[in-house]
């Protein structure tokens, strides 16, 4: 059954139809929030809030065929709110912590790659953490496009519609986002071969 059919059923009073939508979209929305925020608990909160908002506002969705875009828009706004809340509550000391963390991470990576025995100890989970950290360091607007394109598998036209930008802007943000990621990972001496060697 398609999303728009489920929406129609839900609006006619079938709550089970909405639960099917949740079951279908919970994982993509959670992954989007997780990659955007880099924290599982916050991602869980955002996912829950997204579906609660969708439950309340589904009647106002004009084009049910654009449910996925609409749902991602809700999640994106909530992620942005969460980021704003974090920026408000986290003081400068955390920035210092983050820069220290970067130094520690870079130092540890340098050690890992200079020490052959430690190099083998670099596990997949650590690499994923590094990739996540790299992702969090690129500007928010580029990160959004990178996540939507690379991890959510959206087309550039869908991303443009979701963000209210032109297709060319979406492509341009993706280009700069990938370039920025490449530069960050190069600084940390992370490349494809390193990952493949470890895996």
């Amino acid at each position: 059954m398609t999303d728009d059919q489920l929406i129609e059923q839900f609006l006619s009073g079938n709550l089970h139809a909405f639960n099917t939508l949740v079951w279908r979209w919970q994982r993509p929305i959670y992954n989007f929030a997780l990659r955007f925020l880099g924290n599982a608990e916050d991602a869980r909160d955002v996912t829950q809030k997204t579906f609660i908002k969708a439950y309340k506002k589904l009647g106002s969705l004009k084009d049910p065929q654009k449910f996925s875009t609409w749902l991602h828009q809700i999640a994106l706004n909530l992620c942005r709110d969460e980021n704003k809340r974090r920026r408000k509550h986290v003081n400068i000391s955390l920035d210092i912590d983050q820069s220290n963390h970067k130094d520690r991470l870079e130092a540890s990576l340098m050690d890992d790659f200079t020490d052959p025995s430690a190099e083998k100890a670099l596990q997949q989970t650590e690499l994923q953490q590094i990739l996540q950290k790299a992702l969090e360091r690129i500007p928010e607007e580029q990160r959004t496009v990178v996540i939507l394109k690379e991890l959510q598998g959206m087309k550039f036209t869908e991303i443009a519609e979701l963000l209210g930008i032109s297709v060319n802007t979406a492509k341009s943000r993706m280009y700069y986002g990938l370039n920025a990621l490449r530069k960050i990972l190069n600084q940390w001496n992370i490349d494809r071969e390193a990952i493949h060697d470890d895996l």
Binding site: L34, L181, I195
Partner: peptide
């Protein structure tokens, strides 16, 4: 290469 690296990020399952 950057794209290939990004693909190493798994789809987390809640």
């Amino acid at each position: 290469e950057a794209r290939a690296l990004l693909q190493q990020l798994p789809q987390a399952k809640p």
